[in-house]
């Protein structure tokens, strides 16, 4: 065990001791915050997966990804606006509309992200490394610009469709659980599991893993690199789109600029779990959600940003490959 390992364990140990103290002193608050943190973290996990998959395959920090996430919520809210959904009753209409909105938005956003890759990243695949980073920033501005043109800087309301109110919430041991929390967590778990099965079992998933490992070798093995990369962007966007709609259903308010901060934190989550590592991104998202929730509650929300990024730096210093990243010898 090296010095940095000790540092890492000391860090984790301190965090656990501090949280455990809170859990003993005031279990109710603790579990309430835990509940919220997990729900929030589940959304970050969905966004972080897109970052990590894209980074794993073409080593690009896809700055537009957070905005893709927001765009899906905006589009979702627009589609729901067409139907006369009622926010107060949860009947068959609402259920069917929701069931419809998810796949439609996911496909649309998937298509948009594939187009972005095709237009802005693929022509630069052999260019100096920072060129695609700049177009990613440019695409981020474009997507935000489109939303700004559409809604301005106003708060965009997302219909509060999920059943809520008495009957859909419960106190267990003094902790307040709502249907919404459960919905977010269950949806995220289902999506991440589907992704895991896809990556591990399907032919395309294997091609993605192979391309991430060694693009040239994968190409020599007859893998269509362009198709694989497109698929990665598609799947990443599909997850972000699901995340966006879930975010809308959970928080009900967003604006054109939301993707910037969500993206930054989700990206941090991806690094936290070990960039390029898919289970790592899911775990990282969850942990970041928890860190945010605990920090908001116990330290004060204005310190949360500082705490999240300090932890990020500490993790990178003490465990440079992230929580689940493997130690790769430098080539």
């Amino acid at each position: 065990m090296t010095f940095t390992d000790y540092g890492f364990y000391v860090l984790c140990g301190t965090a656990i001791v501090l949280l455990a103290t809170q859990a003993v002193l005031d279990p109710r608050t603790f579990f309430q915050v835990l509940d919220f943190g997990i729900a929030d973290g589940a959304i970050y996990a969905l966004v972080a997966l897109g970052y990590t998959m894209v980074y794993g395959i073409i080593e690009l920090i896809n700055f537009a990804h957070g905005d893709i996430f927001t765009l899906s919520a905006v589009i979702g809210s627009a589609i729901l606006g067409f139907f006369t959904v009622s926010e107060n009753t949860f009947s068959l209409t609402e259920f069917v509309t929701l069931l419809l909105v998810f796949p439609v938005v996911m496909l649309m956003i998937g298509g948009i992200n594939v187009t972005i890759e095709r237009v802005a990243y693929r022509p630069l695949r052999n260019a100096p490394r920072l060129a695609p980073l700049i177009t990613a920033i440019g695409m981020s501005f474009i997507v935000e610009g489109v939303m700004y043109l559409w809604h301005g800087s106003a708060i965009i309301h997302f219909p509060d469709l999920l059943p809520h109110g008495p009957g859909f919430q419960t106190y267990i041991g003094g902790v307040f659980f709502t249907f919404k929390d459960i919905f977010v967590i269950v949806a995220a778990v289902i999506l991440v599991s589907l992704l895991a099965v896809f990556i591990n079992a399907s032919k395309l998933g294997k091609a993605m893993r192979a391309t991430a490992q060694d693009r040239d070798a994968a190409q020599l093995m007859g893998i269509d690199i362009n198709r694989t990369i497109s698929a990665t962007f598609f799947i990443g966007a599909v997850l972000a789109a699901a995340g966006g709609i879930i975010y809308g259903l959970y928080f009900n308010n967003l604006d054109y600029h939301l993707g910037f901060s969500v993206g930054l934190i989700a990206f941090t989550a991806a690094v936290f779990g070990g960039i390029g590592n898919i289970p790592g991104a899911a775990l990282g998202g969850l942990l970041i959600g928890l860190v945010k929730a605990f920090s908001d509650n116990y330290v004060g929300s204005r310190w949360t940003h500082i705490i999240v990024f300090s932890i990020l730096i500490a993790v990178l210093v003490f465990r440079p490959t992230g929580l689940l990243g493997m130690r790769v010898p430098e080539k």
């Binding site: 237009v119 802005a120 700049i134 177009t135 920033i137 440019g138 695409m139 981020s140 501005f141 474009i142 997507v143 935000e144 610009g145 489109v146 700004y148 043109l149």
Partner: peptide, 9 residues
């Protein structure tokens, strides 16, 4: 904002 993005890309 959109325009700046387009210029960059």
């Amino acid at each position: 904002l959109l325009l700046f993005g387009l210029i960059l890309v």
